[in-house]
Amino acid sequence: MPIIRVTSLSEPGLEVYGSLTERQLKSFYDDLGGLFIAESPKVIKVALDAGYEPVSVLCEEKHIEGDAKDIIRRSGDIPVYIGERDLLASLTGYTLTRGVLCAMRRKPTVSIADVCRDAHRVAVINGVVDNTNIGAIFRSAAALGIDAVVVTSNSCDPLNRRSVRVSMGTVFLVPWTWSDDYQQELNALGFKTVAMALTDKSVAIDDERLKAENKLAIIMGTEGDGLPQYAIDAADYVARIPMSYNVDSLNVAAASAVAFWELRNR
């Protein structure tokens, strides 16, 4: 376990924590699946438990025998960069949550068939572009019985640092994958799909037909405009959450929690 004291922001190996964008991290070491950054000891431990491979650790020196001790012990012979709080904040652009970051390798992308084969309830995230909402949806999915998540390419990356942190590491627990052809692929696996949208054809989310489906995929749309029309038209059902006080809709993260609970596999 080489410990490297950071005195300069140009130290080789630190680029993954500072100068690389999220997009660049995703393609970094592309032949090995790219990287992501996990923040805070609790989240990093969830990732390690889920089999993600650490590449390096960045933390304040005091955490070597504190919050980062178990992480370092479990991570093997990887570089551990240490430095003062202010210097690390100037490198990363933010104050570290509990002072520990870990660069980790992404896992290879898997197919919908692999992710959803044994699932009964699936969430589809279509065009959600806020990292906080992505993380919150994954946390609700894990807590409320969603077996897998499918994410369209025009959505935020679930392994974005903020998404990971907001999810409290549940993004490492719920199987997920990317797909823009989810409707066809899910139908082929025996799923019916329900688009969450306000239309003349929308049924209430507590409709018994939805609850009776053995395999159901719940499609959530973008924060502002909701689902695109093509996604609504292709879905087997369209459903709405009944509202009061003339409120037209909930934030997508809040709506997902309501939908996941109401449509959970019974």
Rank of each mutant, 00 (worst) to 15 (best):
L25P: 06
L25F: 02
S27N: 13
S27T: 15
S27A: 10
F28W: 15
Y29H: 06
Y29A: 15
D30C: 07
D30I: 15
L32H: 11
G33T: 08
G34Q: 02
G34E: 05
G34H: 05
L35T: 06
F36H: 00
I37Q: 06
I37T: 00
A38S: 15
S40H: 12
S40V: 11
S40N: 15
S40D: 15
P41H: 08
K42P: 03
K42H: 13
K42D: 12
K42A: 15
V43M: 03
K45R: 14
K45W: 08
V46R: 06
V46E: 00
A47Q: 10
A47N: 13
L48A: 05
L48S: 01
L48W: 02
E53V: 02
P54G: 10
P54T: 15
P54Q: 06
V55Q: 11
V55D: 01
V57R: 00
V57D: 07
L58C: 01
L58F: 06
L58D: 01
C59Q: 08
C59A: 12
E60N: 09
E61D: 04
K62H: 08
K62I: 07
I64W: 01
G66H: 14
D67E: 14
D67I: 08
D67P: 08
D67F: 15
A68K: 03
K69A: 13
D70M: 03
R73K: 15
R74K: 14
R74W: 07
R74L: 12
S75T: 10
S75A: 09
S75M: 10
G76Y: 14
D77C: 07
D77I: 12
P79C: 06
V80F: 01
V80Q: 08
V80Y: 02
Y81S: 02
D86Y: 12
D86N: 14
L87T: 07
L88S: 05
L88A: 06
L88W: 05
L88G: 02
A89Y: 03
L91S: 01
T92F: 04
T92C: 09
G93R: 09
G93Q: 11
L96Q: 10
L96R: 06
R98K: 15
G99L: 00
G99F: 00
G99P: 05
C102G: 00
C102R: 08
M104P: 06
M104Y: 09
R106M: 10
P108Y: 03
P108L: 03
P108S: 09
P108D: 10
P108C: 11
V110T: 15
S111D: 09
A113N: 14
A113I: 10
A113C: 02
C116M: 04
D118E: 08
H120I: 04
H120Y: 12
H120G: 11
